[in-house]
Structures are given as structure tokens and as C-alpha cells.
């Protein structure tokens, strides 16, 4: 079977057997996805809550510790995630219009952004911090006399825990987007409408929202 890049060749607008019609099916999926995103909000809520509790307890130390992060790198990553969020919204837009080429291009750009986000995070934040011994555990090294080492370790625990979980979500996003792109590209019969793109898009926007709150909290506010 020849695969065209300009036309979607799979069966379109299929209604699964448990649903009555397409409209019902689509809204059910959206509600289900949002119910899942509620769990994601509570999931990250715990990380944010722990952060708030400890920053409130150790305010001066935490303010000083935040100087460890470079707002420029965080800012670049913020912008990258905003762009990727935009391009996912665009991918849904094009998928709704059944424009295969544009959908794939937007999803590809999103994946590129996500990859760039992780690379920047690794190269400019995680690896330098690791090399300085700034990671929680027995190998933790700390030479700032103004901040107790254990508080610094707690702060790094929160930083690595929160951004690590966020990074994990980005990684999952990359994998899922790659699968989706492949399935769209080869006209996989499971992609019967734009909903898979929309569902993944909702997930990705959520990842962006987490970063929208994470960035000012960790990189900006204490200044």
C-alpha cells in the first residue's frame, strides 16, 4: 500500500462499539483525559506542597540556595516548552483538518523541542551539579559556610525530585509522540480521528503547565 504524506488513508471517524455516535465518543474521551489530568495535578501537587512547606520553614536558606540555579537556562527552557505547547495545539488544529503533512511536521517540532529541553537540562544543569557533588546522598559536597549542608541537601532533594519527575513526564511525552507520529505516518488503522493527537496534546500542555509554575518557584521568585 502506498503511503501518501498529504492524505490520511486510514478509516475515518470510526465509532467504537460501546458508543452511540462520534460526538459522544469524543466528549467521553475528553472527560476521561481530564479526569486523568486531575490525578496528575494532585501528583505534582505533592511535590509543590513539600517545596512550599520547606521553603516556608527555611526561608533565608532557600532564598540563598536558589542562586544555584541560572534563570537564563530556565528561561530558555520555558520558552522551548511554550513553543512545543503551541506546536501541539497546532498539530491538533491540522489533524482536525486532516492535513497529514502539517500534523506530522508540528508533532516533529514538538518532539524536537522536548528533546532540546532535556538536553539543555542535562548539559547545563544536571551534569554540572553532579560534577560539583551537588546531589543528595553520601557523596554530597558542600562548601558554602552560610548554608547548613543538610538544608542544602534537602533543597537539592526537592529540586531533583520535582524536576526529575517533570523530566520523566517529558521523556514519556517524547516516546508517546514518536509512536503517534509513526502511526500517523504509516496510516495505522487505530488512528481514526484527531482524538489521539488531542489526548496526547492535553498531556503535553499539562507538562507545560507544571513547568509554568515550577520555573518562577525555583528560578525566579527568591531574587
Amino acid at each position: 500500500m502506498a503511503i501518501s504524506l498529504n492524505k490520511m488513508n486510514q478509516p475515518q471517524d470510526v465509532v467504537y462499539e460501546q458508543f452511540e455516535d462520534l460526538a459522544q465518543q469524543q466528549e467521553t474521551y475528553v472527560i476521561g483525559m481530564w479526569a486523568f489530568l486531575v490525578t496528575e495535578v494532585m501528583f505534582f501537587g505533592v511535590m509543590f506542597m513539600s517545596y512550599v512547606v520547606y521553603r516556608w520553614k527555611y526561608q533565608p536558606y532557600f532564598y540563598a540556595l536558589h542562586q544555584e540555579l541560572d534563570w537564563r537556562i530556565g528561561g530558555i527552557n520555558t520558552f522551548i516548552l511554550l513553543l512545543s505547547s503551541f506546536s501541539v495545539a497546532l498539530a491538533v488544529h491540522f489533524h482536525q483538518k486532516k492535513k497529514k503533512m502539517q500534523t506530522l511536521a508540528c508533532l516533529g517540532f514538538t518532539n524536537l523541542c522536548a528533546l532540546a529541553f532535556l538536553v539543555i537540562k542535562m548539559l547545563f544543569e544536571y551534569i554540572p551539579k553532579w560534577n560539583h557533588g551537588h546531589y543528595p546522598g553520601p557523596g554530597f559536597t558542600w562548601d558554602n559556610p552560610n548554608i547548613p549542608g543538610n538544608i542544602a541537601q534537602l533543597w537539592y532533594s526537592l529540586y531533583f525530585g520535582t524536576t526529575g519527575l517533570h523530566g520523566l513526564h517529558v521523556l514519556i511525552g517524547i516516546i508517546l509522540f514518536s509512536v503517534l507520529m509513526f502511526m500517523i505516518a504509516v496510516d495505522h488503522p487505530a488512528i481514526t480521528d484527531y482524538l489521539p493527537t488531542e489526548m496526547l496534546g492535553l498531556y503535553w500542555h499539562f507538562v507545560d503547565i507544571v513547568w509554568i509554575f515550577l520555573y518562577p518557584l525555583y528560578y525566579l521568585m527568591p531574587k
Partner: peptide
Amino acid sequence: VKTYAALGFVWFLMMF
């Protein structure tokens, strides 16, 4: 959908 979109963020505040 609007309700569920707000629900998680509102409920997170319960933790405070």
C-alpha cells in the same frame, strides 16, 4: 470538562 479542568487545581489547595 470545565469542572474537571478546575477540580485538580482547586483540590490541590486543600493540602494547604
